[in-house]
Amino acid sequence: MSNIISIIQGLLVIVPALISVAFVTISERKVMASMQRRVGPNAVGYYGLLQAFADALKLLLKEYVAPTQANIILFFLGPVITLIFALLGYLVIPYAPGTFISDHRLGIFFMLAVSAIATYGILLAGWSANSKYAFLGSLRSTAQLISYELILSSVLLLVILLTGSLNVITIVESQKAVSLLLPLLPLFIVFFIGSIAETNRAPFDLAEAESELVSGFMTEHSASIFVFFFLAEYASIILICILNSILFFGGYLSIIVFSIISLLDLSREDTLFHVLISIISSSPINLAVKTSILVFVFIWVRASFPRIRFDQLMSVCWLVLLPITIAYVILLPCVVSGLLINPVNISLL
């Protein structure tokens, strides 16, 4: 019985995640179309809303072609690994108080580890396809992911320093006083740039630079295995936007409601009012709105900036972003011990 319940729990997270992937693709096409003064998809369904499902159906019905000299097992295993590890990250996300699959003590660490393993899928898929474009694409992608993961993990280190926990829920709850965006503003910018690069999005989409590498590591992948890559890519975009909003915007906590409470000094005399406030101030809708705004910014960035060269990509990572982050890694412990704001030992709360 408990097995069935845990399967249902998993489906309750995975199915909406995959459906949201479909709607993120359609919203991306619509937003980019309106930024480029086009109409975008508008034929399938109302306002073109079902375009993504039509595309998926087409891809699933297509015949798949595997290159003759390809290593077939790894060729098919690569996309599967990428998708599974992109979806595993959803395991530790708190959507609302008490609404999560796993309240893991090392939740953030788990997310980082899982997103690191997803790199192997890309590497295997690109190598096994036995194509120059796919191989070069996977090499570029791996180099990029490994470099930018360093930035993400360094910024995470500072968030952990301020919140005193690796647990995602504790990180969210400790932002009741102030969302970490304000004290860590430059680091949020660094983290956001890092997350764009980590998801292989424009302007850092060197791994699939069409003019140079056809379609990068997924050049030879077609039909349903291409769907796997596609789902993994967009699932990781949503995941990293959720991670951004959890780390810097207070996750499911409503910043606006909390600031109104603190500004007006609303005491908790009225029970019903208090209940209402607590429902509004920590509901999954807050997380959804924050994540949607960040996904929109991802699309906005893609529509606005030209793709940079690979050496520029690497030098931005190693010579600009990493020194800034390391400087903060040195500075912030001094600030914390200077202001005496060491976070409370979690076992006391």
Partner: peptide, 14 residues
């Protein structure tokens, strides 16, 4: 300035 306000709030939160 924004960061200073953030640390001010963080101080009282902690």
């Amino acid at each position: 300035l924004i960061m200073g306000y953030g640390y001010y709030k963080l101080f009282y939160g902690v």
